[in-house]
Amino acid sequence: MGFFLRKRVVSSAIPLVFVVLGVFCLARLTGNPVDLYLPLSATAQQRAEFSAAHGFDDSIAVQLWDYLAGAAHLDFGTSLRTGESAGSMVLQAFPVTLQLAGVTMLLAILGALVVGSLAAYRPNSLVDRIAGLLSMTAASIPDFWFAIMGVLVFGVGLDLLPTSGTLGGPEIWVLPIATLLIRPFGVLVQVVRGSMVGALSAPYVKVARSKGADAKRVVFGHALRNSATPVLTVAGDLTVGLVNGAVVVETIFGWPGIGKLMIDSILQRDFAVLQAAVLLTAVTIFALNILVDVCHALIDPRVRQAVPA
């Protein structure tokens, strides 16, 4: 297991480095942010001073070196937009996204396991068809449309929920989580169902059934664990997508998360914040991928054995 882990860490770290370097260089190809931050009639000298003060007049190699040297001391620079520490801005925004993503994926996985398993137990039954219809619909609905409709119907029309915001009781979570949940839930129901249909027709399930095991034990005791690998893979990918920023939800509902911060920093050419946000999300995704791989190895011994010693 230790060797397996080391190998996964090394192979996952390489894309991490490329992402960080790529974002650093690509951001600078969009130009000097001086126009956004200085007055319209700023003189050439003021522009030059601004560039020099923020290191934009150095070569990309020098800027990269400065960035890496700072990052080594956890100094990610200062936001051009707010003047605050880029690191603290990112650390303030990230928990919001992390919490949204965590709750969403927990609910999506649990819901999909139940609905997908029920659908798979009797393929082509009424339950299966309803589950199929719902999951296809859920996976296809544009999240921004769903969010706005949720605000108008449940916030304004029925007056059941707040329209947006982060301050309040549990009700403030409902619309953001529902908006985030709907697509992962739809996708996962389909994955669970497909995987479970295969597992439930496997010889070991037939043996269990012939030995008189009840439906619950057959589904959850035998088939589910053996069909968990693809579910885990897809759930991991979906979680990565959410951790990378639930931009639509954060924008519409006014949640100050990492996705909104990244979009704002891109639009404002706030390189320090963008780099810090990308680094933190990349590291988190890196850790998530390792975690998914470890779970794979724990669930399926063949994965561990497939890694040559």
Binding site: P95, V96, Q99, P162, S164, G165, T166, L167, G168, G169, I172, W173, G254, P256
Partner: peptide
């Protein structure tokens, strides 16, 4: 962030 007030953001 999410629970410090019960009166809504505004």
């Amino acid at each position: 962030v999410a629970n410090s007030d019960t009166a809504g953001d505004a």
